[in-house]
Simulated assay, not measured.
Amino acid sequence: MTAVALESGYWSSLGEGVGAILLYAIIGLVLMLIGFFAIDLTTPGRLRALVSEGKPNAIIVTAAGIVSMALIVVLAIYSAGGKLSEGLIAALVYGLVGIVAQVISVRVLERVLGIDIGAALHSDVYTTEVLVVAAAHFALGLVVAFAIL
């Protein structure tokens, strides 16, 4: 009969890893919610209601914003190099800065390009200009994420 022996400290290390996953997940969720509400506050109409109503353009913009927030959080975690407290702080700070940069930049881009985001978000049918707005969210998320490194 062969016995399986675990290294000393295995369970402690495993518990720390699980704790880190949960803490990062909470920060990621909080940042995505803050990002959603920031987008909601700066766009005409209630974005949450538009998403609930199934407005395709509102869904596309919301999804792009959430993906971009996730990119920022992932790179903040990666840049922390395994140090939990520093990683959590970096994810939170970079995430908040990313939200502000993203919202301002996307609104400026919409104005410069003459995109009526309010009309697009309220439309019952897909409109092509929403791809520019979604791409701006995604691109700015990438820029902020890689600036973290």
Rank of each mutant, 00 (worst) to 15 (best):
10 Y>N: 01
103 V>W: 00
53 E>Q: 12
35 G>N: 14
47 L>D: 00
118 G>M: 11
82 G>R: 01
74 V>T: 08
135 A>V: 10
58 A>E: 12
19 G>Y: 05
55 K>C: 06
106 V>Q: 10
8 S>P: 00
137 H>N: 15
27 I>P: 03
67 V>S: 07
3 A>D: 13
72 I>K: 00
66 I>R: 10
75 L>I: 03
103 V>T: 15
54 G>T: 02
75 L>Q: 13
88 L>M: 14
112 V>Q: 05
10 Y>L: 01
2 T>F: 09
60 I>C: 06
138 F>T: 05
101 A>N: 08
135 A>L: 14
110 E>L: 02
66 I>T: 13
128 T>Y: 01
141 G>E: 13
110 E>K: 03
109 L>S: 11
11 W>N: 10
90 A>K: 13
72 I>L: 05
146 F>H: 08
49 A>S: 14
77 I>K: 13
129 E>Y: 15
89 I>C: 02
11 W>Q: 11
38 A>T: 06
60 I>V: 15
21 I>E: 03
106 V>F: 09
94 Y>W: 15
89 I>P: 00
116 D>K: 11
86 E>A: 12
107 R>F: 09
15 G>K: 15
72 I>Q: 06
41 L>E: 07
89 I>W: 11
23 L>I: 12
59 I>A: 12
23 L>W: 09
127 T>E: 13
114 G>H: 02
54 G>S: 07
80 A>P: 07
